[in-house]
């Protein structure tokens, strides 16, 4: 990462934890996780709590859907780390890599359910244009998305609009696809908490 404090500025106990994770998982802790451990009272702890709630808390969207939304927003923000990380989680959750690949390559032709498509269109506009209006929301509702599902999707968009920017500004290291697959299994089993 571009800031040395994010590579080396951790307390002794945290460094030991990082070493143990590497030994047991076979991979170094990803930079996204390391960031959460840096001065956690400032950013990491409240960010983690918000992300855990939106990605693993109660929702009308499945975990696969929510991870797909994270990957989709990340693609629009051109954040390579987050696209790879969350497309891997979504594909593992769905048990379907093809669905995720289709959405990320061309939403218009992807074979997905109408409400999921409608909410991705809404998040696409919000991410590209930084705002949406009531008409955009009514269009999504007409496609079968309820108001709570829209609020859930906006919260996911908020969380990943932050993470994407931090990943690219701090320069997260992009590991191998195998490491992302291992990370996906961890995030599905343990979540973000």
């Amino acid at each position: 990462m571009r800031l040395d404090i994010l590579n080396n500025g951790y307390k002794f106990g945290t460094k030991i934890l990082f070493s143990m994770i590497k030994v047991f998982s076979g991979y170094p802790l990803p930079d996204a996780a390391k960031l959460i451990f840096y001065r956690p009272d400032f950013y990491g702890s409240p960010a983690k709590q918000f992300t855990q709630r939106v990605m693993r808390g109660p929702s009308g969207w499945s975990v696969g859907d929510r991870e797909l939304m994270a990957a989709f927003v990340s693609r629009l923000n051109e954040c390579t780390f987050c696209v790879k990380a969350h497309s891997a989680v979504s594909a593992t959750a769905y048990g379907d890599h093809n669905k995720v690949d289709q959405v990320l390559s061309d939403l218009n032709t992807a074979q997905i359910e109408l409400p999921l498509r409608a909410v991705l269109v809404l998040l696409g506009k919000l991410t590209r244009e930084q705002s949406v209006n009531a008409e955009d929301i009514r269009t999504a509702m007409a496609a079968g998305v309820n108001t709570q599902q829209i609020e859930d999707a906006f919260a996911i968009c908020f969380a990943f609009n932050i993470t994407n920017r931090l990943a690219d500004a701090f320069g997260f290291f992009i590991p191998t696809d195998d490491a992302f697959e291992a990370g996906a299994k961890y995030l599905l089993k343990r979540g973000y908490a």
Binding site: Q130, T147, I150
Partner: peptide
């Protein structure tokens, strides 16, 4: 920046409702 986008979206949702 993420907050401005989120607040805009939540305002639009409230208007639509």
């Amino acid at each position: 920046q993420a907050s401005r986008q989120y607040e805009s979206a939540m305002t639009a949702l409230a208007e639509a409702i």
